[in-house]
């Protein structure tokens, strides 16, 4: 190992500042959400209390937070499942060239770079012209998929680009059918990455704003509800909500990452056992 150069310490300091920049503001509102009942939106702290968190649990205080949370959670799960399934299917298809594959590839990229507000407006217009009601579970669901699917697919493309084909050949040589090969060889190998796709699917949906803006209908999702609050709520209850949903996101991220780590460890264990001929 080389000795650490002077630039290492400079860069490390820069990195530390960047992390502070990323997390500092969220920590600030985390602290401010414990503001005393008389306290305002900024420092100084006017006592320490759970007052604003209690406020959140009183329905009449502000909008329909818990209803919107339930909707966002349900929508996140729907988007997650569909994103994982469709991305795996798409990822497998793209391992070979097929007619139309590059057109579809550019469509996927386009889905990522087209400004969200256009998707929102366009889907809203279609539903309007067809005289259908926009609803978070139909139009909102579809609009969000145009954001989560490209991420899922790009991850799957990267996964399959690094996939060792000899595992599949071995399975085929042993007489496995194509479906058996997928079920017992390919899926177990890519499982940790699928958790990653699921994480993207859920969190991107749970936090999505612009694509849901005109497609959610009369029942808001949580980000829409929070955005509504920013214009008419001027008490730390907003921070309390922010702190809670950020904590919720951290719990979700943490559990997904734990699953990935556990899967990886299980794989490594099985691998080494097989190496010793124990199976």
């Amino acid at each position: 190992m080389e000795p650490r150069s002077r630039s290492f310490y400079g860069l490390a300091a820069f990195f530390a500042l960047f992390v502070l920049f990323l997390y500092g503001p969220v920590i600030t509102i985390g602290i401010l959400s414990f503001q005393g009942p008389q306290g305002g939106l900024t420092f100084p702290m006017n006592g320490v209390s759970l007052h604003w968190f209690r406020d959140l649990f009183e329905q009449q205080a502000v909008g329909d937070i818990w209803g919107s949370f339930r909707r966002s959670f349900a929508l996140g799960l729907m988007v997650m499942v569909v994103t994982v399934v469709f991305s795996v299917m798409g990822g497998m298809a793209f391992r070979r060239r097929f007619r139309g594959s590059s057109a579809l590839f550019y469509l996927i990229i386009a889905s990522l770079i087209i400004p969200s507000i256009l998707v929102s407006l366009g889907v809203g217009l279609i539903f309007n012209i067809l005289d259908l009601d926009v609803h978070w579970a139909t139009s909102g669901f579809g609009a969000q998929l145009t954001w989560t699917l490209p991420f899922g697919l790009l991850i799957m493309f990267a996964v399959f680009n690094r996939f060792d084909k000899s595992y599949e050949e071995a399975a085929r040589d042993l007489g496995a059918s194509p479906w058996q090969t997928v079920r017992h060889v390919v899926l177990p190998i890519i499982a940790p990455m699928l958790i990653g796709v699921a994480l993207f699917g859920f969190t991107l949906s749970y936090d999505e704003f612009a694509r849901t803006l005109l497609t959610a209908g009369s029942y808001n999702t949580l980000p829409l509800e929070i955005f509504g609050m920013t214009t008419n709520v001027t008490s730390p209850v907003l921070y309390a909500l922010g702190t809670l949903t950020t904590l919720f996101s951290f719990v979700i991220i943490g559990s997904f990452l734990t699953i990935v780590a556990l899967l990886r460890r299980a794989q490594a264990k099985r691998g080494s056992d097989a190496g010793q001929g124990l199976v």
Partner: peptide
């Protein structure tokens, strides 16, 4: 991961958090 975790949290909350700062 430390760098990417904020990406999976709410943009609106991250934006609001600058106000007291």
């Amino acid at each position: 991961l430390v760098c990417t975790i904020p990406f999976w949290t709410s943009n609106i909350i991250r934006m609001i958090s600058w106000i007291p700062f």
